[in-house]
Design a protein around this nucleic acid. Structure first.
Lengths: 133, 133
DNA sequence: GCTACTATTTAGGCAAACCTAAATTATAAG
DNA sequence: CTTATAATTTAGGTTTGCCTAAATAGTAGC
């Protein structure tokens, strides 16, 4: 039941870029899964009242699903920032998406706080990149 | 095939504290799994030549298994340090064990490097704890 | 408004990990 | 040395998440 998070996050992100409902094929591509796997997972999420589905057209987050998706997105952004700025690693957005759903609430929350603090009063020594501008 | 890492790491840690072979029941307790699940996983690891098993007595890492276990342990230590010192979270060793096996090589490696750098020339502003001594 | 094409869903199967209960093996006590 | 107890393994089953192939629904061109 951990993989569900990835679909919620992908759906959340997709809904920011195009208007719902999001075709299952689009999610399948984002997550590198078969269309069939995506349909199946969306049905599971629907039964958990996290998404609304319009068969053959697409899916969209319910209110509850959007709340969860937003949390995941915050964590995802914080993780991406951490990978890029602290660990000096590019192109790790996919891993950030995967990990966002695997961390405990407390770790996720502290990580988000860390990013916010860092944006408020930047601390150059935290940014380990060679050339940060 | 991601859960296997946890057993390797637990076995690696157990082997530091007591002499091999490590009874499956001991691993089961460390990982909060049933004895049956542990036996099954050890058999799988054995078929992958990562552990040697002595039925009804216990298991020990092979050379290959120990290499992998050591990597996982480094990552685990770095993660524990990160949780405690950067995120100011205690009692997250269990989560560190779980996550150690889920991260990519590159992220794990950078995290370990970060810890080593930090030990060489400590940077107080990275340690976000209120009272660190 | 058909028809051909594309996208989605359904059907059927598989592998990884887990569990409980039953069987087996090891061990400790008398 | 035998037996009772404790630990481990085997047997049988479940859930999650994935896949391919077949069926179905939607859509665009004529």
């Amino acid at each position: 039941m951990k993989e569900t998070a990835q679909y919620l996050l992908a759906l959340y992100i997709a809904e920011q870029r195009r208007s719902p409902p999001i075709p299952s094929g689009h999610l399948a591509e984002m997550l590198d899964r078969s269309p069939a796997a995506t349909t199946e997972m969306l049905q599971r999420l629907e039964s958990e009242k996290l998404v609304d589905r319009e068969p053959y057209h697409g899916a969209m987050l319910t209110e509850t699903g959007r709340e969860r998706g937003e949390e995941l997105h915050e964590t995802y952004v914080a993780l991406s920032w951490f990978f890029r700025t602290v660990l000096d690693l590019d192109s790790h957005e996919q891993e950030a998406m995967e990990m966002a759903g695997l961390m405990s609430q407390s770790v996720a929350q502290r990580l988000v706080t860390l990013l916010l603090d860092e944006n408020e009063q930047p601390n150059p020594s935290v940014d380990t990149r060679q050339d940060n501008h």
